[in-house]
Design a protein around this nucleic acid. Structure first.
Lengths: 248, 248
DNA sequence: CATATCCAAATGTTCTTACATAGACCGTTT
DNA sequence: AAACGGTCTATGTAAGAACATTTGGATATG
C-alpha cells in the first residue's frame, strides 16, 4: 500500500543538525514532487520562515545552496521554482555513473547486469594492453531511471585487478575497486561520437532503430597509467548530455 | 614595461554593482596569485570586512559562492585557502577547429563563411551574458576536408571583443582574437550530445536526413571567466570523434 | 480598447549582533 | 613523554531589521 504522505513542514531546533541543513533536506524532498517539477512556485521565503519558525536568512542559506547546484531558479519579484533537470555528466569531478547520478540525487536503476569471462578481442586487448585471447572479465549493464533505461554499458576489466565476477556490482563500481581491490582510477581517456541505434540497442534503450545515440569509449587508468577498465557506453541522446569544463 | 601592480583591496559603494559581486571578483583576482595558490590563508573574514568597509555577511556571500565552485576551502577555526587546482579536468590540447585539424596534419577547407550582425535571442543572450536583443556578431562556417564538409559551426561573439565582421576569418580564429584583439580564450564549457540531422543540416553536410550528428555547444571564456564566443557545432558523426583525456 | 501608471508582492542586498564550534597552541598534570 | 584541559582564533550558525529592485496585476486614463 503506497500512501501519499504529506511532507511535514517543520524543523527540529534541538536536534543539533544545523537548521539550514534541515531546510535544505526538506526542500530537496519537496522539489521531487510532480507539482513543483512542473513549475509550481515554492512557498515564498518569508512564509517558509514563518512556518518553520526560523529566520528568512536561514531559509536563504538553504535555497542559496540549491540554487548554486542549479536545482532552483529564483526570480526577483516572482518567486522560486524548480529547474527542469536534464541529465548530464559533469566532468569537473569525474566519477562513476552511480556516483554521478547519486550526487544529483537521482535514483538509478539497474535493469540488467551480466557478468562473464570472455576472451579479449583485438580491440579490447589493445585497449587493456593484454594479449589477444586472454581471459578478461566482461560486464554488461543496462541502467537508467525508473521511467526506463537510458544507457547500456559494456566494461572489460584488466585481469591484474583481481575481480572474480562474484562481486556485488550493484554497489558503486569505483568504490569496489578502491576499497576491495586497492585500485584507484585516476585518468580517463575518452572518445565520443554519435551513432545510429542498431536494432538490438534500440530495443534495449527503447528507442527507434537508427535514432541517434551518444557513444562513449573510455579507458580508465590508475595513477601509473596502467589500464583498469575499458568501457563502452551507449546513451540515449534525448535524455543525456555530456558536459565538460575545460581549462587551459 | 610590465609592472607588478598591487591589487587594490577596495570596493565601490556607489557603483550599483552589488558589493558581494565586487568582493567575488576581487577574490577571483587575488586567488590567482602564486602565494595563495601555494596555500597561503586568505585574509580572515572579519579583517576583510573591515578593510573593505562592509559587513562580514557580505564577504561570506562571496566566499560561499567560490567555495561552492570548489575554488576555496574553509576550515573552521583555521581559515580559508585556495584549493589546489592541479587535479582539474584538463583536455590534453583544446584548440580551435583549425588548430585541431592542423595539429593532426589534416588540411581543412572552408566551404562557406557567412558573417552578419544579429540580435541576440534568449539562448545567445544568456550564454554571452548580454541583454536579449543586443546586436552581436554571428558567424556561420561550413568546414571540412577536400572530400566534403563535415562540420557546420555557428558562432556568436561578445560585443566586448570589438570584432567588426570585416576580419579575415580564413585565418585561425583564436590567433585573430589573441593577436588583434588581446582576447585570450582560457576556459571552455562544453555540452555534447547527439541529434538527428535536420533536413537543412543534412543537405549542408551531405548526409541523409535523420542520420546522427554530434552536436556540441561550447562557451569559450577569457581568464576572468567572461564570455567570448558561444559556438554551436554540428559534426558528421561518421567522420568525427571527440577525444578527451581527463585527469583527476 | 489600448496604454500608461501605480501598487503590492517577492526576491535581492546589506548591516548588526550574538553565540556555537573546531582547531591550534600551550601549559599543567599524570 | 603522554594525556588532559584551557584559551584564543577563525569560521559556522542564526536572528532580525531595513531598504532596493523587479515583476505582474490592478487601476486609471486617453
Amino acid at each position: 500500500m503506497q500512501e501519499e504522505k504529506p511532507i511535514e513542514f517543520k524543523v527540529d531546533h534541538h536536534s543539533g543538525v544545523p537548521l539550514h541543513l534541515q531546510v535544505e533536506q526538506l526542500l530537496r524532498t519537496i522539489i521531487e514532487r510532480p507539482e513543483y517539477r512542473e513549475g509550481k512556485l515554492l512557498p515564498k521565503e518569508v512564509e517558509l520562515a514563518k512556518i518553520l519558525g526560523i529566520s528568512r536568512n536561514t531559509v536563504r542559506q538553504a535555497t542559496n545552496k540549491l540554487e548554486h547546484e542549479k536545482l532552483l531558479v529564483r526570480k526577483k519579484g516572482v518567486g522560486t521554482r524548480v529547474v527542469r533537470q536534464t541529465l548530464s555528466t559533469r566532468l569537473s569531478n569525474w566519477a562513476s555513473f552511480s556516483e554521478e547520478m547519486h550526487s544529483k540525487g537521482v535514483e538509478f536503476v539497474n535493469y540488467r547486469i551480466d557478468v562473464e569471462w570472455v576472451k579479449a578481442d583485438r580491440e579490447v586487448a589493445a585497449a587493456l594492453q593484454v594479449e589477444e585471447g586472454r581471459e578478461v572479465l566482461k560486464m554488461e549493464r543496462l541502467r537508467g531511471l525508473d521511467k526506463g533505461p537510458f544507457v547500456n554499458f559494456i566494461s572489460y576489466f584488466h585481469p591484474r585487478i583481481g575481480l572474480t565476477g562474484k562481486e556485488d556490482f550493484s554497489r558503486h563500481l569505483y568504490e569496489i575497486l578502491e576499497r576491495d581491490y586497492a585500485t584507484i582510477p585516476s585518468v580517463s581517456k575518452e572518445r565520443i561520437n554519435a551513432i545510429p541505434a542498431t536494432k538490438s540497442l534500440a530495443e534495449l534503450l527503447n528507442v527507434k532503430t537508427g535514432s541517434p545515440l551518444l557513444f562513449r569509449k573510455r579507458l580508465v587508468c590508475d595513477p601509473g597509467d596502467r589500464p583498469i577498465e575499458y568501457n563502452l557506453g551507449y546513451y540515449r541522446a534525448d535524455s543525456f548530455t555530456y558536459e565538460i569544463d575545460i581549462k587551459r
